[in-house]
Design a protein around this nucleic acid. Structure first.
Lengths: 339, 339
DNA sequence: GTGAAAGCGCTAACAA
DNA sequence: TTGTTAGCGCTTTCAC
């Protein structure tokens, strides 16, 4: 027969018994309440260490008057993509500094995964949610907000739901990137980007169009491509524009996966040093190819800081109206955009 | 004065009241127990939907007889690095299929962060932990295992603690990679890798040495470098070997960050097409540089599958002795290793 | 098939 | 400063 202390995890009651005090005193010591006699506190700590006591957070949250769990949920496109995981890491550090834990999940642009994950996170009683939204309708979140959950949207705004939002200056930065090519003498600039349903893609395409309009360059649909999921289709597009008679002299690619395809195509057709390229979003190897890739990158750290700040203020009770923050991007010339 | 249903979140009691049944019946319906009268079940579901009821998972776990929370903790080096985030994603999907959620954290190779995170996760009462361990002593986990937590180590084994472990065939694969260079006619092969304190680095260096020994090539310390944190030091090393009189004709780099520095150095000295390079670990742009980088990559999906399987079996009660699994790597020739 | 009562481990309220 | 009692929202036990 095993002794009691060998059976699974000790509770606050066992710590109280061993230290000869009450569970309330143990609770006080564990929560760092200072109005406890140092001698008692010492005894409690000793007993806790001896029993390897670990407070059960979930039990504590249940009765806690503010109802908070000090947990935030993070909904990402795909945990493993570089943008998502950098954002996740930045938020992890910011949350830890405030005593919060982060639980994250991948949605793969599927609206039903989004609501499933939100459901799961709510069942775990997160205090707030930071969401890189899919294209779904977010009106259903109104009920959750009434129930006390706070929301911040990042990278893209919500649909039919007003909440704090942090986005990059997508349109303005795409315009500047395109103007950079124009200033380098280009007038025939191809565009490649994600589907126009995606907020960031639409904004960036708008910036591209604005730059052309300002320079009085006519839009040519034959050198414009939307969509990133069909690789073969993209390959056909790049082959057609790069081998055609009226070849563009520059490419603006408005998303990282698209930029990779553009690089691949330029390399394949031995045009890397002939056709200029500016891409939106970061690439970890931008300076390792020849020429280096000139990129517009989002300031992920800054976006995370603003989003975390907004969320924590809401969780603490702030009730002012929703804010939208546009965060400046970073433009880095590395050669490919200056041909 | 607000009505009751407008105050925060409804509980099982309110659902019972609205559907005219007892909390136990609501509990049964919510948990999919089939022995409930369909008419009652329907009424319960209707009430739950109307109130936007979300079961409080943490409350339920408290009383649950198996004590499980259906949560696993994942301890990574750094959530945002590609190996970690790919592993995280693979485990997320595998866990979801089993009805588990994953919470993850970054340790940055700091033993004290490791134990802090483990403490936090245990306070949240995870059922098991998958750990990419730091170099710390893991004997202290024995207490946690007694308290019912299961452990699987991945990428590196634990120290002073016997548990299920999943690692790549580091030594064997490094030997094969080095032999690949030898078979291509190289006899002067530089080695660059992480600090020898790191298990994977030590294993891979052992493989390098074994290949040289087998081919009767003498080890030359002047073309061997350990450590990845000091970039300047690495730059000095590459400069010294690449500009020296007795230049190596090939490099084996045993980790992704090191490989990046090797590529950078070869590019800088215009030797990318003269000096062969084989790297360990994946690089997202391996096929986008010229020449493409020949790499040994870990089969992350497979490692995740084996680790998840081991952990879930333990959580379900398996008590057989700890297993160590070595997972084969993938070797991809892209040009840089065949010069 | 259904429900009343007890209790999971903790914090809150209040009394001592 | 300390302890007692109630109760958070749920599952379990067990009687009906």
């Amino acid at each position: 027969m095993k002794s009691d202390s060998n059976r699974a995890r000790p509770t606050i009651r066992e710590v109280a018994a061993l230290s000869g005090t009450s569970i309330k005193t143990v609770s006080r010591v564990m929560n760092g309440v200072t109005t406890v006699d140092p001698t008692l506190a010492k005894a409690v700590n000793q007993a806790a260490r001896k029993l390897n006591y670990r407070p059960n957070l979930t039990a504590g949250n249940l009765r806690r008057v503010d109802g908070r769990t000090n947990t935030i949920g993070l909904l990402l496109k795909d945990i493993s993509n570089p943008f998502s995981s950098s954002l996740h890491r930045a938020l992890e550090d910011l949350a830890r500094a405030e005593g919060f834990d982060v639980i994250a999940g991948s949605m793969d642009e599927m609206p039903e995964r989004e609501s499933e994950l939100i459901s799961t996170f709510i069942s775990r009683r997160v205090d707030g949610l930071i969401i890189v939204p899919t294209t779904s309708d977010h009106k259903y979140l109104e009920k959750e907000r009434k129930a006390g959950i706070q929301f911040v949207f990042i990278d893209r705004p919500a649909n039919n739901f007003t909440a704090d939002t942090v986005v990059a200056t997508n349109c303005k930065s795409a315009q500047k990137a395109t103007e950079h090519l124009i200033n380098n003498g280009h007038t025939r600039i191809a565009y490649m980007g994600d589907s126009q349903d995606i907020y960031t893609a639409a904004e960036r395409f708008a910036g591209y169009k604005a730059a052309l309009a300002k320079a009085k360059i006519k839009l040519d649909q034959s050198i414009i491509h939307h969509g990133v999921h069909d690789k073969q289709e993209m390959d056909e597009f790049t082959t057609s524009i790069l081998t055609g008679t009226n070849r563009p002299t520059a490419i603006f690619s408005s998303q990282n996966y698209v930029t990779i395809e553009a690089i691949r195509a330029l390399t394949k057709h031995k045009l890397s040093k002939k056709i200029a390229l500016v891409g939106f979003d970061d690439l970890p190897f931008a300076d390792l190819v020849e020429p280096g890739i000139t990129l517009v990158t989002q300031d992920i750290q800054k976006m995370a800081e603003v989003a975390a700040h907004l969320l924590f203020e809401r969780i603490k009770g702030k009730t002012s109206k929703a804010e939208v923050h546009e965060i400046d991007t970073i433009f880095t010339q590395r050669g490919s955009g200056e041909l």
